[in-house]
Amino acid sequence: MNGFFKTGAFKLLCVVIAALMAGSILAGVSRGGYSPLTTVTGIVFSPAARLASAVSRGLKSLPISFKSSSALQKEIDSLNDKIDFLNEKLVDYEQVKHQNELYKQFLELKEENPQFKFVPSTIIGKNSSELYSDFILNKGTSSGIKADMPVIYGRYLVGVVGNSSLTQCTVKTLFSSEMNVGAYEVRTREIGYVTSSVEYAEKGLCCMPGLSSSTAVATNGMVCTSGIGGVYPEGLVIGTIADIIDGTADVSSTALISPGVDIASLTDVFVITDF
């Protein structure tokens, strides 16, 4: 047993673990930061992740069709080619339309709030061991992105920056149970906070708990950020109320909120770096 602890591999393991733990402690001390080792790895390998992300997007937009080699198939093939061509155009059109809509909403927000500073960013990956939260953006501290900065899509709040390294950052979405966003319902001005749980996230919902049982908040009401707490600016749209449910443990009610944007299908977002 004594010999086991004297092996080169065990000594190497101790050194590696010590270095990794030192990195973890440094990451913990610099709140919201990545460990230096992960930062270096991120810098070295982020081009590979970006390239892979770009290839994946390219492949998604390719119209793939399977063609037979029979004589009659030629005519179908030619028509399919035309359909493919038109589909490609349609995909381009939809993408441009989609992007145009995003930039229009974004422009409105920028005009209403000229003091806002934004950094556009692309989603390059998702944490495979996280189901409802955490995605990775291709910008980090080198672009001025730090922990606790709000992430939006158009006028809609998507989440908040969790950790940030030099070249990338992690975003916690509205579906994360770690989210606590100061919010209010637009019609009744009732204030509260928005969070989520596994059950709600699975249904694509977040929630606003702690409303009084006699609340005037009703379905289809819009929920926006209240600005309380200073992490999120006031007036970002979180979503619309899908249902009101009564609490089981007390007399309070919970509003279930359907986020205004389909978070799972996002590819580009904006990070508000100053407001």
Binding site: A9, I17, L20
Partner: peptide, 29 residues
């Protein structure tokens, strides 16, 4: 390749994985 390579490649793979998680080194460890 043995434990020696296991430690080194484990740390390397873990660091790559950590880039997509919270950024601490627990997966690498």
């Amino acid at each position: 390749r043995g434990a020696y390579s296991g430690v080194l490649f484990g740390a390397y793979a873990g660091l790559l994985w950590d880039c997509f998680t919270t950024g601490n080194n627990f997966t690498a460890a």
